[in-house]
Simulated scan of single mutants.
Amino acid sequence: MSTGILDRSKTVQTLNVISEKGLSLLDGDYLVDDKIEDPGAILLRSYNLHEVALGEHLLAIARAGAGVNNIPVDECTNRGIAVFNTPGANANAVKELVLTTLMAASRQLFDGIAWTRKLKGQGNAIPKLVEQGKKQFVGKEINGKTLGVIGLGAIGARVANDALDLGMDVIGYDPFISVDMAWNLSSYVKRVLAIEELYAKADFITVHVPLTDQTKGMFNEKTFKLMKSNVHILNFSRGELVNDRDMAIALEQREVGKYITDFPNEAVLNMDNVIPIPHLGASSKESEENCAIMATRQLKDFLETGNVKNSVNFPDTSLPFTGKKRITAFHHNIPNMVGQMTTVLSSFGLNIADMVNRGRQEHAYTIVDLDHNVDDPVLNNLKARLNQIEGMIKLRII
Rank of each mutant, 00 (worst) to 15 (best):
L54Y: 02
I71A: 05
L166W: 11
Q108Y: 10
M168N: 05
S347D: 14
N333C: 10
H332K: 14
A329G: 09
Q253E: 14
T14Q: 08
R117N: 11
A329R: 05
V170C: 09
F84R: 00
K145P: 07
I393M: 01
N230A: 13
H279D: 10
L226R: 11
M103C: 08
G55H: 03
A202T: 04
G257F: 13
V189R: 09
K325A: 14
G306Y: 07
R191M: 15
G148S: 04
D165A: 15
H50A: 05
Y30M: 08
R79Q: 06
L382Q: 06
S46L: 05
D111W: 15
M1S: 12
G65R: 00
V308F: 11
I393W: 00
M337N: 02
D369M: 08
D213P: 09
K134A: 11
W115Y: 10
S9Q: 07
P335I: 07
G151Y: 08
T215F: 09
S24A: 15
V52L: 14
R297S: 10
E197Y: 09
D7T: 02
M271K: 06
P72D: 01
A64D: 07
P377N: 09
V378W: 07
V68Y: 04
A182G: 12
L211A: 10
T77E: 10
T305D: 02
V159D: 01
R254P: 00
V159R: 08
Q253H: 05
N307F: 09
A292L: 02
S187H: 13
D246Q: 03
L211Q: 06
I352A: 09
L350N: 04
R158S: 13
